[in-house]
Amino acid sequence: MDNLIIHGKEYSSRLLVGTGKYKSFTQTREAINASGSQIITIAVRRTNIGQNADEPNLLDQLPPSDFTLLPNTAGCFTADDSIRTLRLARELLDGHNLAKLEVLGDPDTLYPNVVETIKAAKILVKEGFHLMVYTSDDPIVAKQLEDIGCVAIMPLASLIGSGMGILNPWNLEIIINNTNVPVIVDAGVGTASDATIAMELGCDGVLMNTAIAAAENPILMASAMKKAVEAGRDAFLAGRMKKRTTYNASPSSPINNTISKNKFA
């Protein structure tokens, strides 16, 4: 079975999805169901004081019994904030150690601050967290994060929420070829072909949120993404044909024994 294996646990789906930007918890659940995802990200935020009585809880709709929850550190701009957030998340999820680390550099581009990310990763790994770490497509940083002990490396395709797809497949390839833990493209996927391209490059999985939630028909897009990731993975495993480097043809039908114009006497 071609399963995704993260820190020893196997998953049949290579599509990971976020739970943000949806219209309702119901739509979130329907989209996740359509995507077939087993690993879903959640964020951790202060509870609203004074508005608690009947507020529905995300964890009731998306229980840890049905999914592998991946708490993130979205909105954290320092190592310290991300560390505090994941400690809270672990308590929230009854000691669950798997987490997504992201430390952002600025609020406009949401580009990762890799220096703070590395700093946080060192501390969090020592505290027993199994980190799936969001990072740039810098292969040296990716290697450092792997060496620290992160269980998955998650380089961006393009900026979070941009939908611009894979802007640098070359760097992604370097990372894929040099990393021994799963490489999961995270951020910037916009449509199905982006996910397929990521998988064709050899990625182990794709994580997306906006691509599905901001589609006109999120449920349909979620289903498309499921197929896209599967198609890309199969194409990768099938070993694609060689791409020509010069623009010339190679016929698919036999050259000989074609009929030709007859000269009847």
Binding site: G20, T28, V44, R46
Partner: peptide, 10 residues
């Protein structure tokens, strides 16, 4: 004190 809950996020 910080009192937090899980919310939707990417």
């Amino acid at each position: 004190l910080e009192i937090v809950v899980a919310v939707g996020g990417g």
